[in-house]
Each structure stands twice: as C-alpha cells, then as structure tokens.
Design a protein around this nucleic acid. Sequence first.
DNA 1: CGACACCTTGAAACCCCTCAACGACTGTGG
DNA 2: CCACAGTCGTTGAGGGGTTTCAAGGTGTCG
Lengths: 200, 200
Amino acid sequence: MLGGWCLRSRISEDGQRQVVNFLLPGETCGLFAIVFGRAEHEFSALTDAQLARVPVDRLSQLFASSPRMALLLTWLAARDERMLEEQIVRLGLKDSPHRLAHLLCELQARGEAAGLPGTDAGELPLTQAVLADTLGLSRVHLNRVFGELAETGALDRNGDGRVRITDAEHLRRIAHFDDRYLRRGPAAAPREDIGRPDGD
Amino acid sequence: MLGGWCLRSRISEDGQRQVVNFLLPGETCGLFAIVFGRAEHEFSALTDAQLARVPVDRLSQLFASSPRMALLLTWLAARDERMLEEQIVRLGLKDSPHRLAHLLCELQARGEAAGLPGTDAGELPLTQAVLADTLGLSRVHLNRVFGELAETGALDRNGDGRVRITDAEHLRRIAHFDDRYLRRGPAAAPREDIGRPDGD
DNA sequence: CGACACCTTGAAACCCCTCAACGACTGTGG
DNA sequence: CCACAGTCGTTGAGGGGTTTCAAGGTGTCG
C-alpha cells in the first residue's frame, strides 16, 4: 500500500460481509495472499488509493537476494497477524460499545502513523455499514451504539461516510486501548524505515 | 511444536479468556511473538506436549544463511494468519451451531494432518470450557449447542475433556467447511517437507 | 424529479447470558 | 474407609443485549 484507505473482507455464502482488517499505507495486503495461490477474499477502497504490486515469483528471489528486506516483510506480516488477534479479542469478549471504541482507537492510531491527512484531527473515512460489518453487529444496532458514544462527547457524526473523534483520550480510556501492539517491538525489529518497493 | 495440543489465548482485565488459536505439531507459535519483544498472550497445553525453542537472535541469522528456510517459516506464518482470518469470520458472522461445527472440522483436519493419535477417529482433547472461550460463547450456552449437534448424530460426548466426532462428513456439511485454507497453495509454496529445526 | 447511499428510529421476537443448583468423577488427606 | 475439594458436564428460569422487520429522513448525483 502506498496511499489511501482499503479494507480486506470475506463474503459468506448468504451474502453477508465480514471485514477482516484494514489496509493503510506502509502495510502489506498479507503475504498469505501471495503464498496461497488464489485470493479468497475481497479488497475494497474506502478512499482513492494507490498500491504497488509485487509479482509472486519475485518473492523467493527477494528472499534469496535481500535477507534484510525479507526480514522486514516478515515483520510486517507479524504486525498484521497481531492486529488480527486484536480483532478476535474484540469480537470474542468485548461488548458492543467497547468494540466500537477500541476499533476507532486502533484505526486512528494507524492512520496517524501512516501520515494520512485528517487522521490526526480524528477524521476517519468510515461508514457505519463498514463499522458494523467489521464488528459483527447489525447496522441498526451499531447506529444506536454509535449514538451512545457520541453522547459522551468522544465522537461526532460528520455526515456521509466520515467519523470524527472529538476526544481521543476519552475514547482510549473507554476502550482500555493500549497501542503497544501497533508499534515495533524492541527485539528483532528492523531499524531502518520502510522503503518504497523497487518493483512496479 | 513437535508433539501434543496447545492453545494460545489472551486474558482480559476482568479475567475472561479468549482463545486465539490452537497449536499442533508442525506449526509455529507465531513469529510475532519473536518479533514483538514481550509476549502478551498465554500458552496452555491441552495434552502432554513437546516443543522446540528458537532463540530470538538466531532468527535474523537464519534469514541470512538460509533463505529457503526463511521462506518456509514465512509460509507457516501466512498459514497461521489464514487461520486467524477464519476465526474472525466464525466470530463475526456465524451463529453458534455453525461456529462450533466449523471449529471442530478445522481442528480435526489439522490434527489429522499433524498425525496426532486418535484424531483420525474423530477424538479431540477439548473441554467444553475451551470451546466456549474459543467461540465467544458462555459455557452454559455452548453446552446446549453441543447437545443440539449431538442429537443430529454428528458428535458424541466422550466424557471428561474429550470430544468425539462420529460423522465427520455430516459435520462438514453443516459447517460448510472447506479445508483449502489449511493446505499449501499451488503458487509459491515450498516443495520440500517441513524438517525438524536443527536448534534446541 | 427519481434513484441511490447513508443515517435514523420504533417495536417485536429471538438468541444468548447470568445466576443458580445439581450430578458424576478424580484425587487428596484424615 | 469416608469426607472434602476440584474439575467438568448438565439443566432450569429470568433478563437483557441484538436482530430483524419496517418505515422515514437526509443528502448527492444524473
């Protein structure tokens, strides 16, 4: 990913959608899509987005020629997996207000880290339908939960596909949000910044 | 992992447990645990288990010296992430009978692939408490759903921490289970078998 | 203007949770 | 030998969180 907001989702046989994760600049769309032949999921863009493709057969070549880059890709994949784990915890043992608050905290933190415009002001390009499909809630119910959170002053409805976080600190307290899982760990994390892939 | 059944879980601040994934022989406990310094999750053994440890600092060394092995590790991580995605879909858009059926299908398939004894006969070392904490259901409710499935003839209660699948094909039909995500894909998958790590 | 996407609200039905109690089994120690 | 605690499974009743159905409101765009 180079720019914009995307999401990765699965469609069930009866047409329901489950958003698995979001995709922001500086993140990969999962090595697994490469390693497993066919993609069994969908990608959708929430905003105008730019992305770079890496041909499958160049991957093993990359591992052979640049172990440093390979380790970096692996670190990205590990971070991605860590985010999926957080999503599982949200779905498995949080109630709806905490789910919503926690997800919004994560997306703001990620958007800010990716340098996406408006995110530092709390603006996220998310419709309530997307949030509902991410959190395993119906759209009707998510709307009510959203209203509850808005009344605490943490959120604002910004009209037509935009959420605005007005009090991020308050939201983080509600969600018990701890952003450590998004940052690079001290152990084997690569030191240099993520460069632009040199392929097309 | 070399032998036995383990699970990876997270504990919330109020003491609730969420099982994130299971660990069987031939699978890694996630590179992320290595890449991120501290482990924020727990590991528990369901049976007697044996596992091999790889020191953190040997990982970058491994990437430099054996790109083939590095690619294989990455493939394992990708498969792990694919399983987490399936868990998200279970929690997000399946109802309780389908959750249970689908999870049991997956675990039997994985256990059989790992060559664990009894698994091919449908025996799994799972308590109802573990299943409930995996599927985001209360123990009481899981027990009732379990009873429902047992009445269809797909399951059997085998007493004290054991589940027996009596009609695997029927269970797969109920769960709409498709095991493709567990097998190696045709694209960049390594051809050779997974060797025993040469470290301690 | 009509079509469309998104948000909003109300009411009834349902899934699932919590609380509570009981039975079966295992191992422990008096 | 028996009482005890511990784990696991089971069952009933009540309440609450969510879903579904249904309808209406707003804005944008052709």
